[in-house]
């Protein structure tokens, strides 16, 4: 395969050798209390293989960060976890993925119901062209989670509170969601995700479009949400991964190179590629 890594300095040939020799993920991919499990997952876009034999557990009440250079497959892997890749016709997934032991890709599983259990927050805030209230109430409404207006109000308000947005918008819930600032929009999208009470929240670079202050608020929020949800976050910022996650997975060109506790990955990486990336030699 062709290595597109933009390596620099001394590590060039050594790094690509290390990648070619990479057979198995370094570190323990399992956890004691798994929420989602992926085993030997391959993903193809048409003829291009985007992910090679990735196995990874996502534990309850933990934040797992997925880092790696651009095009390494971390977002693709994330999108497989709630079958968002279904909408891409050329995308093919093989291997086992499960949520509480249930096979995600079995024919008996309805991806629509899966996505209600595994929510997702996207890179760019994408509020609907609706009011703030309706944005949050959207999920509960389509899933029939509230039987009357009062219950719906409760869900909306508690979701906004959990997302740390209620204070700022409580007096203008009828304003369009798009009228909020970027950081507020992203927290609105998180509130929207929380409102359907998912079990897992997937976040695909949720802060890459935000300024540092908004980012700090979202990171605080992620840490609070960990009490109730399993969270997987893809990020380009290693500082962010270090701040919010308990475990970190390093992806490289479609392979999962190394998994471990965030502390270990950042202070004592085992694999050469991980070390190169963490120390900024490439990526």
């Amino acid at each position: 395969m062709n290595t597109q890594t933009t390596t620099s300095g001394s590590g060039t040939s050594a790094a690509s050798d290390a990648f070619d020799q990479l057979k198995e993920t370094v570190g323990d991919v399992t956890v004691t209390d798994p929420k989602m499990c992926a085993r030997n997952v391959d993903v193809f876009y048409g003829d291009n293989q985007a992910i090679y034999d990735v196995s990874l557990d996502i534990g309850n009440n933990e934040v797992i960060a997925m880092i790696g250079p651009s095009g390494c497959g971390k977002s693709t892997f994330l999108r497989c976890l709630n079958r968002m890749n279904d909408s891409i016709p050329s995308c093919r997934v093989s291997g086992d993925m499960s949520l509480d032991g249930e096979d995600l890709y079995s024919t008996s599983l309805d991806p629509v119901l899966l996505r209600a259990r595994v929510g997702m927050v996207f890179q760019k805030p994408n509020p609907f062209a609706k009011s703030i209230y309706d944005n949050v109430a959207y999920g509960p409404r389509i899933h029939g989670l509230a039987s009357n207006r009062a219950e719906l109000d409760d869900i909306v308000i508690s979701s906004l509170q959990k997302a740390g947005l209620h204070e700022e918008v409580h007096d203008r819930l009828d304003a369009p969601g798009t009228s909020l600032s970027g950081g507020q929009q992203q927290r609105l999208c998180i509130a929207r995700t929380i409102a359907v009470s998912p079990e897992v929240i997937l976040m695909d670079e949720p802060c890459s479009a935000l300024d540092p202050i908004a980012t700090a608020r979202i990171e605080e929020l992620i840490d609070e949400l960990r009490q109730n949800y399993a969270i997987a976050i893809v990020t380009h910022s290693m500082q962010q991964a270090a701040r919010v996650s308990q475990r970190t997975a390093y992806f490289h060109l479609g392979k999962l190179v190394e998994v471990g506790s965030t502390n270990n990955i950042f202070t004592n990486p085992q694999h050469e590629l991980t070390e190169n990336y963490i120390t900024g030699r490439f990526g």
Partner: peptide, 11 residues
Amino acid sequence: AMRDGSYALGA
């Protein structure tokens, strides 16, 4: 992105 947001909520 707007459609994705909706799908991701299980719509």
